Amino acid sequence: MRITVCLSQQKPEPWVAGLQAALPGAQVSAWQPGDPPADWAVVWAPPQAFIDEQTDLRALFNTGAGVDALLQLRLPPGLRVVRLDDAGMSVQMAEYVCHAVIRHFREFDGYEADTREGRWSYRKPRSRADWPVGVMGLGVLGTRVAQALRVFDFPVHGWSRSPREVPGVVCHAGEAALDGFLTSCRVLVNLLPLTPQTENILNRQTLGRLLPGGYLINVARGAHLVDDDLLALLDSGHLAGATLDVFRTEPLPANHPFWSHPRLTVTPHTSARTLRDESIAQIAGKIAALQRGEPVAGVVDPVRGY
């Protein structure tokens, strides 16, 4: 069994060593052009040349939850793409989103600004009943986020393309339910996969349906958001602010207005990072299962895009 590792913007050596230790009977190496065919590939944003050369692959294992970059390549028909189910990312995402929601709800930005200027200030406590939070996308990450928000007694709504059930969460499904979902929420958290159907879904029309003084948290993909529409809604006062962790161009260009807008919090795509050891253990387990002819979780439907 031969495994090849092809990771853009990452050093492959720790992955090679970890996979070799987890699967001692395998031959594991970092991909170089001209390498012999492999059975399995562990990848992040590989070049098209890798796909064209590795014609005997039984599956591609993506080292992140999002597979949109892979699905933009010309993949051979029938090649399985397998994403990470969790591997330590869901708890990170829950931490990040809960921090962003609570920071805005409790007006900590305002207190911080006051203390910098030596002011001892007071703000009237807000009622959680007036701050329903909506989570777009109820996959592994979205479900964990919705459940975490319920711990803090926020009313939580969830929206997904197909019906889901999450205890304590009001679930909406399908295009027909999107408007009702949006108008029920003051805070919107985006955790949708990026597909042709969801690109630009965070626009003037959808964000304008949030309750007045709405707040956006985008932790999925930058291409979900129409940047100018967000800025217009912030400047009009319909949206009170946003926390953004993902952007159309990364790193975010130095002259982008998001950097300096007073109602925006910007972080460098750090909401949920891949944890290498956990990911290697999961990928190795899935390779072993597929070798035995067993099904595995996380196989991507190329039609749906996730």
Score class of each variant (00 low, 15 high):
residue 159 W to G: 13
residue 134 G to Y: 06
residue 142 G to E: 12
residue 96 Y to C: 06
residue 111 Y to V: 02
residue 149 L to Q: 11
residue 169 V to W: 04
residue 151 V to S: 11
residue 161 R to K: 15
residue 96 Y to P: 05
residue 185 C to D: 08
residue 107 E to C: 04
residue 168 G to P: 01
residue 128 R to K: 14
residue 183 T to S: 13
residue 103 R to S: 03
residue 163 P to Q: 12
residue 68 D to F: 04
residue 127 S to P: 02
residue 132 P to K: 00
residue 136 M to S: 12
residue 181 F to H: 09
residue 135 V to C: 00
residue 132 P to D: 02
residue 90 S to D: 11
residue 171 C to D: 04
residue 137 G to I: 14
residue 127 S to V: 02
residue 173 A to Y: 14
residue 70 L to P: 10
residue 121 S to C: 01
residue 89 M to K: 09
residue 134 G to V: 03
residue 78 G to K: 10
residue 67 V to S: 04
residue 109 D to G: 01
residue 66 G to W: 04
residue 119 R to H: 08
residue 166 V to W: 07
residue 155 P to L: 05
residue 80 R to Q: 15
residue 82 V to N: 09
residue 137 G to T: 14
residue 113 A to Y: 00
residue 68 D to N: 12
residue 156 V to D: 09
residue 93 M to K: 10
residue 129 A to T: 01
residue 168 G to S: 01
residue 91 V to T: 14
residue 170 V to Y: 01
residue 112 E to M: 07
residue 140 V to W: 09
residue 179 D to F: 05
residue 139 G to E: 09
residue 64 G to Q: 06
residue 76 P to M: 13
residue 77 P to N: 10
residue 70 L to Y: 04
residue 93 M to W: 02
residue 144 R to T: 15
residue 107 E to R: 15
residue 174 G to D: 13
residue 102 I to P: 00
